[in-house]
Amino acid sequence: MEQPIISVQDATKIYGGGFLSTSKPFVALDRFSLDIYESQAKIVTIAGESGSGKTTLANLVLGFILPSSGKIMYKGQDVSTMTREQRRIYRKEVQAIFQDPYEVYNPFYRVSHIFNMVVRHFNLAQNKNEAQQLIEDALNVVGLRGSEILEKYPHQLSGGQRQRIMVARAYMLRPRLIVADEPVSAVDASLRAMILDIMLKLRDRHHISFLYITHDLSTAYQISDKMYVLFQGTTVERGNAGKIIENPRHPYVQELIDSIPVPDPKMKWNTNITLPPEEVMRMKSSVGCRFYPRCAKHMDICTRAFPEYTQVEEDHEVACYLYQ
């Protein structure tokens, strides 16, 4: 059995509610599990609305925060108890691209700083020429040239350039997994296609897996292999991305896919969603399906316990009592 590169095991993240704290515990992510294997590079989409726990998951996988319970394992090693050397290898193999391609640059330095940091702290090159060559190669993958951008300051570049540079930076480390936290939400449509294209290229030619975090189901449909749909921290549907989007089973996912706007002016957008008080179902004490207050098909059983995952077809599971 192959060791997964990243294995998220029943990870739960609860904010607040600590000793002496006045805030009620808030469940950001609830018993999430996911395995990503090295041998078959895949784009795994984590989809969900704002506040569904997508970014919490990204921060957990990147080791920025620790889970309240459950484990994040990198090649069988718990991320929270790594030695310095283990951490270095984990950092090299698990990289990230973030949503805001301006925030990630220190306004104090030129663009080359971002590459120099990587080269220096991972000992990628023996000398200056070798480093130069590495940086140039990485930039070429995303269609940029070093002479155009390296000596500039981040504010002198366009949003698309900045995001492509971040992809090049991640690629330079030849990681096995890139956590892409809404990488195309802040760039315009033509660049979106370009960056998604680069992601596909990195998957197919360089065997890099992606954890693609998005609220945009249409891009998820285009590029992802596997998909997890989150709702208020819980996974409501998981499996093959195409199957989920073409044939959604969970009432929430059905609602979500109905609400994708169609580029046709004659089509009237008549989804009518009424939202209950936001965090009714979010507190630590609550059990049962979190979609209950919004669900059109809710039943009494829904509030008793969180539903087990039911396999509705091959590689397609849903957490809903309608299918049990």
């Binding site: 990147l62 920025f64 951490r87 270095r88 950092r91 090299k92 990289q95 990230a96 973030f98 805001d100 301006y102 925030e103 990630v104 640059y105 220190n106 971002i114 940091m117 990587v118 702290h121 991972f122």
Partner: peptide, 13 residues
């Protein structure tokens, strides 16, 4: 919490 500090963390600084 700024992005560039996270980038530095990811760069093993």
């Amino acid at each position: 919490e700024r992005g560039f500090v996270r980038m530095a963390l990811l760069s093993n600084v």
